[in-house]
């Protein structure tokens, strides 16, 4: 997408990556990033270098430092933040799916979710700063900032409330289906009847929520000064550090692809589980019967 954007926008690719007003020497920049030989060459070169573990060097955020080193430092914090934020989100979604979230609590969550991440993050930052003062960057304060960030990320911009409301609505609608009512009359478990039918959609919803967390991590990390990938991406964007932006965006895209793969695996498993019936004879004859 980045490669396409750079060449889709009118103008010299090197000037687009870093305007002459900001960076001097666009010719050097073009050579350094293989921008002078078209988008395909640029993309293939970058990918082959990335596969060899070479993402280039930072040239404005931390001059000369390999991007891979910066990413290695930032990655654990971002992953911890997203993981910690997604735990209550998953828990909320499961409880809502079971229909155990009181309506009033859901309304409270929705009210909290209406707050933007930047405001909640500011509140969290103020609390941490008031508590730790000059020790803001001690290891204990860093842990607290990470936990506060996870809390903010989990609540702000409707992350938790959307997960709760989405799961409740999905399962409630399915529980209203006639086959579930009949299964209930046959004494079967309602959840085991509904779950295979909504598992795919539910996995899709939860994937969207985790993507939302990844998106929100940028603001939360930047406000709370958490040395994560989001903060790195933000500073790199401000300072026009193309290498870091490209690497961070690629990482987020890979995370997204991984989530998509997980969702696909859930769907495949459900389909396999549904087919795992005591098929008394082969499937070929089944289709003949149906016909």
């Amino acid at each position: 997408m980045v490669a396409w954007l750079i060449w889709a926008i009118p103008g010299d690719p090197a000037s687009i990556i870093c305007p002459p007003e900001v960076c001097a020497g666009t010719t050097g920049l073009a050579e350094r990033w293989n921008l002078d030989r078209g988008p395909i060459h640029f993309y293939l070169t970058w990918v082959s270098q990335a596969l060899n573990g070479d993402l280039g060097n930072s040239w404005r955020v931390q001059q000369g430092v390999p991007v891979v080193s910066l990413m290695k430092l930032a990655l654990p914090n971002t992953l911890s933040l997203i993981l910690l934020a997604s735990l209550p989100l998953m828990l909320g979604a499961v409880v809502a799916a079971l229909g155990r979230i009181p309506r009033k609590l859901e309304q409270v969550l929705q009210l909290g979710g209406a707050l933007p991440a930047v405001v909640l993050a500011l509140v969290a930052a103020a609390v941490v700063q008031l508590h730790f003062g000059a020790d803001m960057y001690s290891s204990q304060a860093c842990t607290i900032r990470l936990l506060a960030g996870a809390l903010v990320l989990g609540i702000a911009d409707g992350a938790l409330s959307s997960a709760v409301t989405g799961s409740r609505t999905l399962f409630q609608r399915e529980r209203g289906q006639r086959y579930v009512q009949v299964a209930r009359l046959r004494g079967e478990n309602v959840l085991s009847n509904t779950l295979p039918n909504v598992a795919g959609a539910w996995a899709g919803q939860l994937r969207a929520r985790i993507l939302h967390l990844m998106s929100g991590a940028v603001i939360v990390e930047a406000v709370l000064r958490i040395d994560g990938l989001g903060d790195l991406l933000w500073r790199a964007t401000l300072l026009q550090d193309f290498g870091i932006v490209l690497a961070a965006a690629t990482f987020f895209a890979l995370m997204s692809a991984l989530l998509l793969l997980l969702q696909a695996l859930v769907e495949v498993f459900v389909a396999w589980h549904s087919r795992r019936a005591p098929s008394l004879v082969s499937r070929q004859s089944t289709t003949r019967v149906a016909a």
Partner: peptide
């Protein structure tokens, strides 16, 4: 509409 659309008949019988 009363049979589970995502389960085979055999599984529902089982």
């Amino acid at each position: 509409s009363a049979l589970n659309p995502a389960r085979t008949l055999g599984r529902q019988m089982e």
